[in-house]
Nucleic acid binder design. Structure first.
Length: 976
RNA sequence: GCACGGAUAGCUCAGUGGUAGAGCGGCUCGUUUACACCGAGUUGGUCGGGGGUUCGAAUCCCUCUCCGUGUACCA
């Protein structure tokens, strides 16, 4: 057994073991090894952004996954934890564009052009991307790095295209001109999920307009956005509103732009709430979703008065054009005031949608985008509702169900260059004017002809939007994935979606141009559980590891990612993508505030690891992360984790310091037991002889049993924090504070047979302890596993090579306990002893004695010599006399213990007053308890109605308390 | 607005009908041959307020307040 260093140096140990694990390919999954006896266990990592760096959120999330993966390995499963990153369209393009601008390389992305910019982003990605992957390794993540994936890998991209074209063919993906959420900062459309509502302190502006047909009649209109008044197309009132109904059909003059005060119709629309504001609504179709809908009902045009970047355009009039939207708002209010239209301004609280990424208010904007009607919604909703897929904590199932019940089509196109470009090509053709009959045109014409003939044949298979499907199979015989889509407005727009390279080439050669948009990053990550495993092939990986077992993620992406993965899983694999979903809490600082860059309250996990070790960070964060609640991060918890590792290290060193040749030889001679525990996957250096087990030995084995059971159950139920609490209690309090201290009675004695036996128990307990700790503290447990030689004599794949493959401990069963002669009541024997020790220590403390001192025990029953020695050591007594006939001097402090009266004879230095005060306090307490229980027993209502068991308990309680009280009163009298 | 969580010791949290718990912190001791990143002792709570059910409520029911999350939004 090599000697352990006096101090533990985590940085060296952690780096060394991680490299060793990689060299030994410990994390690599092999589908060929999966069998009935060796079931698969799989997790796919929530892919972090390729631009990202490790945050505490990642630490929490990935520590949990690592714990699950490592425990699964110890349970003998074939484990795949599949890692990777996503391309994070907006974030990544932003980062690179910003860098290029900062370096003065470009002023605008157009300076480079699409191809060059994408090239630059790839360069950047290769150079700086994936830092987070290296950081995860520092944390100890046992991912199968040989399977690392990126959402823009060529194979992955093909999956994305394939899915797009498939959904397009099914008519679930369509292009439409709609009001979308527009981010004026990123200059792209966003999905509803990327918009967060924030309460604002805004201003409500009231302005008045005169009814043209009724001079002198004024309408007052309330608005928070006067800057878009130039885009107003009508004034709407509720037709049932008696105040205004008669005005419907008349007109008012729009106040802005001042130089173009056009007349606007007054229309009636049920949407208008006459309770709200003035009951008169201005209708700005191009800048408000609800207004747009009103406009559609009344055939009003949508006039956009804003550039995409939020600057007002010429249509806003000379006063506002060129102004940024918020400056324009103030200016518009001033203009209203100048022309005498402004009535009043009031402070007003409202909610405004913000772009989640750019953190600027979004604009509702009319634009042409791609939308997806979600597929496989029914099985996806059912699987969670029925509980076939389980959410932890369960309440997220309701949130999921609610969202699934009100699905809106998903806007999947983004006006970016970094991402998967929409695989659709388009060409506008003037059918009747094929004036230049080139070869290309002829071929296209023939396609169009076939389209038209198909359309005229009234094919019932015709999908939505009047589109007709035509195969391009003559171009690429293998592909039938192409579909032509015919729009009939003005010229013909022929549209083809394709994944075939040959088809793409043909389309481009024939003057088709590809759609410039890219797809939402989530449109690629929703395929993650299978696109990372070789889909669409029926790969070995998919067969072995799909559906995955657990998914661990934050509830903030339940809709973005989790829900969509479930739908994609059903649509493309016909099965759920994972069986359990564990939602972590949100990491907050110790004041409960969210971690944020601007607050500067998000510590760098790597700095924490450098300061305390990865094990410490893992343990600390798991200890403070109860299921279903937010985590208040406090570095104190990491400190506690580090202290715990140190304790573990020192306890192991203590064991080593006991080892020497003389006990080994004597143990061999004395150990007569046939019992080995090799069947538990662990060979102790010496066998345990049941005949030599002390009450403390039996106690710690029982406590270990409890700990194993509790930790196993907690992990089964994803209660990681509970598991760490058990580990902490068991190891620190039960093993170190009580068992090791008690065992010193044997270890410091001279009975070498007993000594060897105690060491065998210690080894047994430590060997098990390291294993139940391993998922939480992978590094230090591995170091100690080897450092203490627990790996020797074990098969390579059962703990010989690494503790991560050592079998997960099971508690001793009845037969095994019987073999060791351990009975449940043995726990009480030791507990009584420890209780006695606590009371004795309390006496010492009361009388301010810190040195070794004489105790006298007047035993209630006879005690074996060994037990007395344990008591002596734990009490730090010198000596501990056991004397059944002891008669104390007046005023000798005494404690009533389960083992008898324990006296602290203080020759000559008795402080009678202090003792009287102490005992009086005890008396008062016991009198209180006794009064409570007697009151209950005296209550007819209580005694007649309560179950017998409870009644007996109360009677026993009364007996105990009154016996205690008698003794205490006697003590008090002796002090007088 | 609606829905769901939460409120227990100074702090973080266990505790789902029968004597209120743990860790940390605080305080007091203590260099006893694993560990001061330690040990021993000790302090500390009318379980958010009010009402109800019950012999008995932190626990079950109703109601209110505050905090958090999700969701819907009206200018």
């Amino acid at each position: 057994m090599p000697e352990l260093d006096k101090t533990y140096t985590p940085s060296e140990v952690e780096a060394r073991w991680y490299q060793q694990w990689l060299d030994d390919k410990c994390f690599q999954a092999d589908p060929a090894r999966v069998s009935e006896k060796r079931p698969a266990y799989s997790i796919v990592i929530p892919p972090p952004n390729v631009t990202g760096i490790l945050t505490l959120g990642h630490v929490l999330n990935n520590t949990i996954q690592d714990i699950l993966a490592r425990r699964a390995r110890m349970l003998g499963k074939e484990v795949l934890w599949l890692p990777g990153t996503d391309h994070a369209g907006i974030a990544t393009q932003n980062v690179v564009e910003k860098t290029l601008k900062k370096n003065g390389e470009i002023k605008h992305r157009d300076d480079l052009g699409r191809e060059k910019l994408v090239e630059k982003i790839w360069e950047w990605k290769d150079k700086h991307g994936g830092i987070i992957i290296q950081q995860l390794k520092k944390l100890g993540a046992s991912c199968d790095w040989s399977r690392e994936r990126f959402t823009m890998d060529p194979e992955y991209s093909r999956c994305v295209q394939r899915v797009f074209v498939d959904l397009y063919k099914k008519g679930l993906i369509y292009r439409g001109k709609r009001m979308v959420n527009w981010c004026p900062s990123s200059l792209t459309a966003l999905s509803d999920e990327e918009v967060i509502m924030k309460p604002q302190n805004a201003v409500m502006y009231y302005f008045k307009v005169e009814v043209i047909e009724e001079p002198g009649t004024w309408l007052t209109i309330a608005t928070t956005r006067p800057e878009v008044i130039p885009g107003d197309q009508a004034i709407a009132v509720n037709p049932n509103d008696p105040r205004y109904a008669h005005l419907i059909g008349k007109h008012v003059r729009r106040p802005l732009p001042v130089e173009d005060q056009a007349p606007l119709p007054i229309i009636g629309d049920e949407h208008v709430d006459f309770e709200f504001g003035t009951g008169v609504l201005k209708v700005t179709p191009a800048h408000d979703k609800a207004d747009f809908e009103i406009a559609q009902r009344h055939n009003l045009p949508a006039v956009d008065v804003m550039h995409p970047n939020g600057v007002l355009n010429e249509l806003a009039g000379k006063d506002l054009a060129g102004m940024e939207r918020f400056a324009a708002r103030k200016r518009a209010a001033e203009l209203l005031a100048e022309i005498g239209s402004l009535v009043k301004e009031e402070p007003y609280q409202n909610n405004v949608g913000y772009s989640e990424r750019a953190d600027v208010p979004i604009e509702s904007r009319l634009s042409e985008q791609w939308f997806l009607k979600y597929p496989s919604t029914q099985p996806s909703q059912e699987v969670v509702a029925k509980g076939d897929m389980r959410f932890f904590p369960e309440r997220w199932a309701k949130v999921y169900d609610h969202w699934m019940g009100g699905l809106q089509d998903w806007c999947i196109s983004r006006q970016l260059w970094w991402g998967h470009r929409v695989p659709v090509w388009r060409k506008t053709i003037a059918i009747d004017e094929s004036d230049t009959p080139t070869k290309e045109n002829k071929e296209t014409q023939s396609l169009v002809d076939s389209l038209l003939s198909a359309a005229s044949s009234d094919s019932p298979a015709t999908p939505t939007n009047g589109a007709v499907e035509v195969s391009l199979s003559k171009i690429d015989a293998q592909s039938s994935s192409c579909r032509l889509h015919l729009h009939g407005e003005g010229g013909m727009v022929v549209e083809a979606a394709s994944t075939s390279v040959a088809e793409m080439r043909w389309l481009e050669e024939h003057g088709f141009t590809q759609d410039p948009d890219v797809l939402d990053t989530w449109f690629s990550s929703w395929l993650w559980p299978f696109a990372t495993m070789g889909w669409p092939d029926k790969s070995d990986d998919l067969r072995a590891f799909y559906p995955t077992t657990d998914l661990v993620t934050g509830p903030d992406i339940i809709f973005f990612w989790v829900a969509r993965m479930i739908m994609a899983g059903y649509e493309y694999m016909g099965e759920m993508p994972f069986k359990n979903v564990y939602f972590t809490g949100i990491i907050r600082d110790k004041q409960g505030r969210k971690m944020s860059k601007s607050l500067g309250n998000s510590p760098d996990p790597l700095e924490i690891i450098a300061k305390y070790s990865a094990d410490a960070l893992r343990f600390g964060i798991m200890r403070s992360a109860p299921l279903g609640q937010d985590i208040l991060f406090d570095e104190k918890n990491v400190e506690l984790g580090r202290n715990f590792c140190t304790k573990l290290w020192n306890a192991a060193r203590f064991r080593q310091m006991q080892s020497s040749d003389d006990w080994q030889s004597s143990s061999n001679a004395s150990s007569k037991s046939e019992t080995t525990i090799t069947n538990r996957g662990y060979v102790a250096e010496a066998e345990i002889n049941p005949a030599l087990l002390s009450s403390d030995d039996k106690w710690i084995v029982l406590r270990l049993n409890t700990a194993i059971t509790e930790v196993s159950t907690a992990l089964d139920e994803y209660r990681f924090s509970d598991a760490t609490h058990t580990l902490y209690r068991f190891f620190w309090t039960e093993y170190c504070d009580w068992y090791i201290e008690a065992s010193k009675a044997t270890l410091q004695g001279n009975d070498s047979a007993r000594k060897a036996n105690t060491l065998a128990v210690i080894d047994f307990v430590l060997g098990h302890t390291l294993r139940i700790f391993h998922p939480f503290l992978p590094f230090i447990t591995e170091e100690l596993w080897h450092g203490m030689g627990f790996n020797t004599d074990m098969p390579d794949n059962q703990g010989g090579k690494s503790i991560m493959f050592a079998p997960w401990p099971k508690p001793l069963d009845q037969d095994e306990l019987a073999h060791f002669g351990i009975l449940p009541e043995d726990e009480q024997t030791a507990n009584d002893k420890y209780k006695t020790v606590e009371l004795g220590r309390g006496l010492k403390s009361t009388f301010n004695i810190s040195k070794k001192v004489r105790f006298v025990l007047k035993p209630a029953q006879e005690l074996p010599a060994h037990e007395i020695e344990v008591l002596r050591i734990l009490l730090n007594a010198e000596p501990l006399d056991v004397d059944a006939a002891f008669t104390p001097k007046k005023g000798t402090p005494v404690a009533l213990t389960p083992l008898g009266e324990l006296f602290l004879p203080l020759d000559g230095i008795i402080d009678v007053d202090a003792e009287r005060a102490r005992v009086s306090k005890e008396v008062a307490k016991v009198e209180g308890e006794l009064a409570k229980v007697r009151a209950k027993l005296a209550d007819e209502n209580f005694t007649s109605k309560v179950p017998q068991k409870v009644l007996d308990e109360h009677k026993q309680r009364e007996t105990d308390w009154s016996a205690q009280l008698d003794k205490l009163r006697a003590m008090l009298e002796a002090l007088v």
